[in-house]
Design a binder for these strands. Sequence first.
DNA 1: CCCAAGTCCTGGTTGC
DNA 2: TGCAACCAGGACTTGG
Length: 279
Amino acid sequence: MPELPEVETICRQLAQRLVGCVVEEVELADTAVLLNTSKEELTSQLVGRGFTRVGRRGKFLLFLLEPGEVWVTVHLGMTGQLLLQGDDAVSHPHNRLVLRLRRGQCGTREHLVFRDMRKFGRVEVSQGGPSDRLRSLGPDAWEPDPQYDPDFLASRLEGRKAPIKSLLLDQRIVAGVGNIYADEALFRAGLSPLRPGGSLSRSELEDLCEALQSVMAKAIEARGCSISDYVDTDGRAGSMQTCLAVYGRAGQTCVRCGSTLIRCVVGGRGTTYCPVCQR
DNA sequence: CCCAAGTCCTGGTTGC
DNA sequence: TGCAACCAGGACTTGG
């Protein structure tokens, strides 16, 4: 389940290892991964161009290729993986797209593999800028985004009656939060996931802001959370799953007060929280 | 058979 | 009354 920390981990790896590689060949195994992009467009825009920059916005990965400012925007969906493999790359039933690359003039061969079991991931090619889908995103729920602060959160939550958990998952409000870190941040902030978004006080908003930042920072440090399918570009798991206080722990005891953690459904999403610590 | 996930879409409701 | 904003729920996908 790639959320902001998992995508950031992948982004950092690819920024180091993908820049300087030129696309030699495109192997598309499933046209359904393409969004607003034809198979012909994918090939003609990528072959012969080189990666010059790798970035992230929310849960989206952004790749800039030159010459001609060609952008590739990737969303990993639920189970998407981006793997960087050498000549030992092998075919796999869930490989959707493979870019065969060459590093430098006569350098080594690499393969950038987009693998996705559940088929929710998407790849989009565009010129002059990344995907239009980025336009509706709120600021990243993480420190480096200067727009992200309690004031902004307050303005977006004012008057909202939907549960705060659902609003945190709305990428138009803040970007990068998924089901795992929404539950974890609400636990850290001592807030019930069921609270109407507009009912949070100023100090509660500050706590929530701080909780999101601290949980994101810790998860990035742990190189992500490997609950089900997530791995980094080398296929290695992260370690954040061992640090989770509530997600996946329904029926177990609260690490803070010892009460039994409750599971319920909020906005159609499984939600775990402590009925004593979170009010 | 149902569950999990993230995003998009739809249809119904609320509030100005 | 009309309209936009809001909210809930379903579709999509497939292995466990």
